[in-house]
Design a protein around this nucleic acid. Structure first.
Lengths: 187, 187
DNA sequence: CCGTGATTTCAGGATTTTCTGAAAGATATG
DNA sequence: CATATCTTTCAGAAAATCCTGAAATCACGG
């Protein structure tokens, strides 16, 4: 590996974090490299930069494409495929959220649904099912919130984030206003 | 493994999902078992229920405790340690978010900070640093939002979730009101 | 349809992670 | 403090994952 020190540190870090993020070292490194690269790279550029085998890069790129985290680009007058990451970090965030949900949450949600359909045949099962119902309820709340929020344009999403917990104040204000109006009408 | 079918399906599913969630099969199964169990279990109960070695259970419990996902309980007149999961699923959600942030986000944030302190010595490094700054900015926004929101009591948090993207309407309403008031004062 | 270069597949070797049994370490009790 | 009971540690076996090089496949220009 022969990269500018800053880039190298970044790439190595992503490689190390890979296992915690559910991807392997090479995949993490490829992603990091593409993320900071000023132009799309072809597979051989990556082999060169990271010092791993060509086939490993091929598999890594395949996985990252499955994650929608890298995009195929064609460079005029070059037969080789080139790859980049989406430019916009917000876009990357969306993709990441979507894919993780798909892989880490949806399967559990569907298993829970299925198990909740069944009729318990003992006290133990009845209790277990009640616990599963709680979990299911929570996950469903979270996912509907997510489905809702992900439709927002980036600007609105950013505004919402910036607001943070202050939204609750807004909520209280709303309640007061609504209460006031009701009061007037009814009183 | 000899468990009621409903429980068994749940436990096996958690075992399978384990690898996607960054824990191993046994840890996933132990968690699932404790989650649906109506009373705290001791290590040998778990060995019995899951059919894995005593030492494996010991290590699994240790890991789950490090995650704050299982709690040690003492049963009167029993020397053995017993274990449960937190009752409240919201509490579990909080713990999970906190721990994942600590493991999966914080290290990257600190590496990014460090790399952003350095002075780039080439155009390549300058560009890489700019990209890192974007990533850093996004992560920081997300984490401050998170720090903010995690302080909310469960009830408020639930209200916020239920509101979903509708908050933006509230935001718009607020903007209008503020605009109106300003308009009056200034016009 | 041949040749060239790019890419993917895949079997098996290397590495990492998980799991086990045996032994050592705790801790309460008489 | 000896014993019985419960827990943890740890070295190595077992399993899973990752990575490579060789071969196969693909895609395009001539």
């Amino acid at each position: 590996m022969n990269l500018p020190p800053l880039v190298q540190s970044f790439v190595l870090h992503f490689g190390e974090m890979g296992s915690r993020w559910g991807i392997n070292r090479t995949v993490g490194q490829i992603y990091a490299l593409l993320y900071v690269s000023p132009r799309p790279l072809c597979a051989d550029d990556i082999v060169e930069a990271l010092g791993v085998s060509r086939s490993n890069v091929s598999m890594g790129l395949r996985e990252l494409q499955a994650w929608n985290l890298v995009l195929l680009r064609h460079i005029p007058d070059d037969r080789r495929d080139h790859f980049t990451t989406p430019e916009d970090v917000w876009q990357i965030l969306r993709v990441l959220a979507e894919e993780r949900k798909k892989r880490e949450v949806d399967p559990t949600l569907s298993v829970l649904r299925e198990l909740l359909m069944q009729t318990p045949t003992s006290e133990a099962e009845r209790h277990a099912q009640a616990r599963m119902a709680e979990m299911h309820g929570l996950i469903e709340r979270l996912t509907t919130w997510y489905e809702d929020v992900k439709k927002l344009e980036t600007e609105r999403l950013a505004a919402l984030l910036a607001l943070g917990a202050k939204v609750t104040r807004l909520l209280e204000a709303k309640d007061r206003v609504v209460g006031l109006v009701r009061g007037r009408k009814e009183g």
